[in-house]
Nucleic acid binder design. Structure first.
Lengths: 153, 153
DNA sequence: TATTGTTATACTCTATAACTATA
DNA sequence: TATAGTTATAGAGTATAACAATA
């Protein structure tokens, strides 16, 4: 009944309270992030796909969709403008005529570098300066958040 | 040029590397979260609004929109089904005929309680069990994430 | 005239279902 | 027949612009 009393109610080790707060925070941060970026061409979904393409080298559309956790038709929609904008190259898969391999173009790599240089501000556009301790807390949590992202398979 | 060498490049105290990773992680976690919930009626945006209405007592539509950081017409779309489903009550504002006050109904409060009881799993549906240390890292970062959410004003 | 909320319209992101081309 | 990808269509969520009602 107390907010902290259900620590091991489920198997996850986090209190139900913390899970709910984390869920709400992620949704709201995402909203801020999408709105603040304001980038018409390189939207959040496209940037995520582009970063994934860079990370995992040449890969097929279905593989990319699996990595990103979206349906294949959704990824078609995401990738098409990236190709049109010259950030991702589609080359025929020599081993399977049905597939094409996706890889970042030089412009795509440049773009990622530029974004990494420009978007050094925190997702929220607040003027808040975090204390060193708060920065450490975020940095410590980052690998855990990324762990939650790994594909279930 | 090392990944950790630009710690104080901007004013935020987080490395550019960490900011980029945090941005990507939030976007991807949000996607997982929305997809995993699968709740047709109480979507993520509606749940967020409902929780906010509970938290801030009776409030007007424009206030709620400001809290959630969305445009007023967007909030109209979000609130309408909540009212239709009986989770939020709209009562005329006695002091301003243009406004109505939003408050959670008993059913809305029950629903929040039920969700808090049910959704104790982490956003990602993975079977992963976090170590106690990882749980502590998440819990320590949670207030920092929430700090980033506070309205800029 | 300014403000609150609504409706009209459009765009992104996502999904499922139906289709084409290749294996 | 099965698989990789595409296109068609639909729905959630968001925005801006135009409108109505009230202050």
């Amino acid at each position: 009944m107390s907010a902290d009393g259900d620590r091991s109610a489920d198997g996850d080790g986090l209190s139900a309270e913390a899970v709910v707060r984390l869920r709400l925070a992620i949704g709201r941060l995402h909203r801020q992030l999408v709105r603040a970026s304001g980038d018409q061409d390189l939207t959040a979904a496209r940037l995520s796909a582009l970063a994934r393409v860079k990370q995992h080298g040449p890969l097929r559309l279905g593989e990319l969709a699996a990595h990103e956790g979206v349906a294949v038709p959704s990824m078609v929609r995401t990738v098409t403008p990236l190709v049109a904008d010259g950030l991702v190259a589609r080359t025929p898969d020599p081993r399977d005529g049905r597939s094409q391999l996706l890889a970042p173009t030089p412009l795509g790599l440049e773009t990622l570098t530029r974004i990494r240089r420009e978007r050094t501000a925190l997702p929220a556009g607040r003027g808040t300066r975090l204390t060193p301790e708060q920065c450490r807390a975020l940095e410590a949590a980052l690998p855990v958040l990324e762990l939650l992202l790994e594909e279930p398979g």
